[in-house]
């Protein structure tokens, strides 16, 4: 096979892996948007907060240590224990459930029946609050997240694909972490779909998404469903936070991946779980391939805008996205 083609395949594969991470972030948006019609701007910062909490718990960091130390004049930093990754993940998931409950109790509950834009503004407020709160709780420094996932290129894949090309080709370079992310994302999506299709609470969630008045009338508690949805979205944020955090460290820029999720949502549709996945993959592959093929001709750095232009095209020709729920109109 010609080397150019092999490189294109490698780029595609890497694009798919990057796309999986976009999908993970987009998923959280879809969940909340479906259930409450709210575009949750805070989804990205939730991923950051979850990752910070995970690192903090794992390392036994004392929360609010800076604040405590400056008030009490103490010198606390670490509890001095080290918690295994799995337990830390479970504890962090618990924190995200608590967070969902707090958001419902102190924000959403008071905004029932307000126009969507007000709820959207509330999530923007929430974003900046959490950004500061996360820093206050765990410190603003760059943290390294290690939950024991393998990292670095897979030698095995390189060795077993090297024969495809000539002397200049050393096999496909694929990060092990990306493979792990793909597997985890696949499991997560399967679990989410099973939950929403085959359980009573999942059905109630979809009912609320369709018509919250009617859901109320059959005795579904909106407040409970909201806590549930935000908890699930928090868990998805945690998974996204782990993957992104392991890849590039836990830092403020993590919260900006939320912006990358926007074009994914426009492509896949705001209301579709499969849409978020496929949209993420298309954006991931699309921007890598575009950079690979067209980038050199126009001076590169196309990854910054390619996704948005693609999304714009979709908005013009298919506003509900690839898989968005058709707006049912009976005549």
């Amino acid at each position: 096979m010609p080397d150019q083609l092999l490189f294109a395949i490698e780029v595609t594969l890497n694009g798919l892996m990057a796309g999986v991470l976009y999908s993970l972030v987009a998923l959280g948006f879809v969940l909340i948007f479906k259930a409450s019609g709210v575009f949750n701007y805070a989804q990205g910062v939730m991923a950051l907060f979850a990752a910070m909490t995970l690192v903090g718990i794992q390392k036994g960091q004392v929360p609010f240590s800076h604040l405590i130390n400056s008030i009490l004049g103490t010198d606390l930093h670490y509890f001095g224990w080290h918690i295994p990754a799995l337990i830390a993940i479970v504890l962090t998931a618990g924190v995200m459930v608590l967070f969902a409950w707090i958001v419902e109790r102190f924000v959403l509950k008071h905004l029932v029946n307000q126009p969507d834009i007000i709820l959207f503004m509330a999530t923007i407020g929430l974003t900046y609050f959490m950004e500061g709160f996360g820093d206050l709780m765990w410190g603003p420094d760059l943290k390294k997240l290690d939950v024991g996932l393998a990292q670095g290129g897979s030698l095995w894949i390189e060795e077993h694909t090297a024969f495809l090309g000539g002397d200049g080709f050393y096999g496909f370079f694929i990060d092990k972490l990306d493979i792990a992310a793909t597997v985890v994302a696949a499991l997560l999506v399967t679990a989410l779909i099973m939950f929403s299709q085959y359980t009573k609470q999942g059905r109630a969630m979809r009912a609320v998404a369709d018509d919250h008045q009617a859901a109320l009338s059959v005795g579904i508690s909106l407040r409970f469903i909201w806590v549930l949805v935000w908890s699930v979205a928090g868990f998805v944020a945690l998974v996204a936070g782990i993957m992104w955090g392991a890849k590039s460290g836990v830092q403020f820029s993590l919260s900006l991946i939320a912006l990358k999720a926007l074009p994914v949502l426009m492509l896949g549709g705001f209301t579709s779980i499969p849409g978020a996945i496929v949209g993420g993959l298309i954006i991931g592959v699309g921007e890598k391939l575009f950079e690979f093929s067209v980038g050199p001709l126009i001076g590169g750095a196309t990854e910054n805008w390619f996704a948005y232009v693609l999304a714009l095209l979709f908005l013009v020709f298919r506003p509900q996205g690839l898989f968005g729920e058709k707006i049912i109109e009976r005549v």
Partner: peptide, 29 residues
């Protein structure tokens, strides 16, 4: 609803994207 009082709203208000059977099942929530 748990005490046995339920309202059928004006204008039907079905869950459009759920199947007929799923709609009925939400009543048993």
């Amino acid at each position: 609803v748990r005490r046995g009082v339920i309202q059928v709203m004006e204008g039907r208000h079905c869950f459009e994207h759920l199947t007929v059977e799923e709609n009925l099942m939400t009543g048993a929530y």
